[in-house]
């Protein structure tokens, strides 16, 4: 790992921004009665942070229903994300997507996705574009341990391998698919073991350690850019909360288990490693935490003050070109 001071601070800033977004944005969304389908990635910050630090805006990622962290790590503006969660016209998706579909094509963010595993072939397709156009871009498919059992992942890994596509399959194993433990749903010891079946490297890393994720990602991205094909990375991480804000995870896991993982918190681990090295102080990191907190205050304010979409906008962007009359003809709409 070769990260300078700026690079290190940048990693921490991304992680604390994600943490603050989840801790503040999700309850604020709930208070506004917007959605039950909001999934917190608190606890998993090191994974998108370590990966996306190896990418530029020109590279692509495909994401999941638990995708706020992926968006922030890829550079999507948290203020705009908050507006999207609040269903405002100023969101990147103009209020048509919400938490499970946040996208920002200007940042190579191909969307969080509400169907488990569905974004994986989209990332493979983005990698195919890169290969055909020979533009040096790479794509990352983020998915969870639950999606590792979806057929489309296996088809996609096989396809990416035979075509040597510049794509990285990044499994965030947070231990649970809703309430189903990964040791029940995954036949192999590790998801990364499955790489062997598709003739690609399989790397298993500590997903609570941003440096471990960064190193594994750097290796996989270099391999992809060199035209050597895909890599499967499994990052062992932990979801601090339930599947959504409404379930109580203690119905399927223990307090001791939660305490064990929280003791390995990725932001705390970062501090424990970096501060003793002497180049970065606790105060600097505290300041980044405070900035993230202030950013969320600003984001909530921005979102609250943003206009709601006009109801008639529901007909926009279904297609590039299609008669609007056909969308509402004869069905007695009011707008």
């Amino acid at each position: 790992m070769e990260l300078d001071r700026h690079g290190l601070l940048s990693l921490y800033k991304t992680m604390t921004t994600i943490r603050h977004f989840e801790e503040r944005g999700i309850p604020e969304t709930g208070q506004r009665g917007m959605s039950a389908s909001v999934h917190s990635s608190a606890g998993q910050e090191a994974v998108p942070t370590g990966m996306c630090a190896n990418l530029s805006d020109d590279d692509y990622i495909g994401s999941t229903h638990r995708g706020h962290g992926h968006c922030i790590a890829k550079g999507v503006d948290p203020k705009l994300m908050m507006a999207e969660l609040f269903g405002r016209a100023t969101g990147p998706n103009k209020g048509k997507g919400g938490s499970m579909h946040i996208s920002d094509m200007s940042k190579g963010m191909l969307g969080t996705n509400g169907v488990v595993g569905a974004s994986i072939p989209l990332a493979v397709g983005a990698a195919l574009t890169a290969k055909v156009k020979k533009n040096g871009k790479v794509a990352v498919a983020f998915f969870g341990d639950g999606a590792s059992s979806q057929g489309v992942l296996h088809e996609s890994m096989n396809l990416a391998s035979i075509w040597k596509l510049p794509v990285i399959f990044l499994c965030e194993n947070n231990g649970y698919a809703m309430s189903t433990p990964s040791e029940y749903g995954v036949s192999t010891t590790h998801v990364s073991d499955r790489a062997q079946g598709y003739d690609m490297p399989g790397i298993n890393v500590d997903g609570m350690d941003v440096f471990a994720v960064y190193d594994a990602s750097a290796q996989a991205v270099a391999r992809a850019r060199a035209g050597e094909g895909p890599t499967l990375i499994e990052a062992q991480t932990y979801r601090y909360y339930g599947h959504t804000v409404f379930d109580n995870p203690l119905t399927y896991r223990s307090q001791e288990e939660e305490d064990h993982w929280r003791a390995r918190d990725p932001l705390k681990q970062f501090r424990d490693v970096v501060i003793p090295q002497g180049d970065i102080t606790a105060e600097e990191l505290d300041r980044l935490d405070a900035e993230a907190e202030a950013l969320m205050e600003e984001a909530v304010k921005f979102a609250d003050e943003s206009p709601l979409p006009a109801p008639v906008e529901l007909y926009d962007d279904v297609y590039v070109d299609y008669p609007v009359d056909m969308m509402k003809r004869g069905v007695n709409m009011s707008v």
């Binding site: 692509y60 493979v124 397709g125 195919l128 574009t129 057929g151 996609s156």
Partner: peptide
């Protein structure tokens, strides 16, 4: 064969990849 791609029997992957490619600059 870069533009005419024989696929394995993996409709979910290649139809999905064609959609991903079409979203990122190709016309698949």
């Amino acid at each position: 064969k870069d533009r005419v791609l024989d696929t394995p029997l993996s409709e979910a992957a290649f139809i999905g990849a064609a959609i991903g490619a079409s979203s990122t600059g190709l016309r698949a």
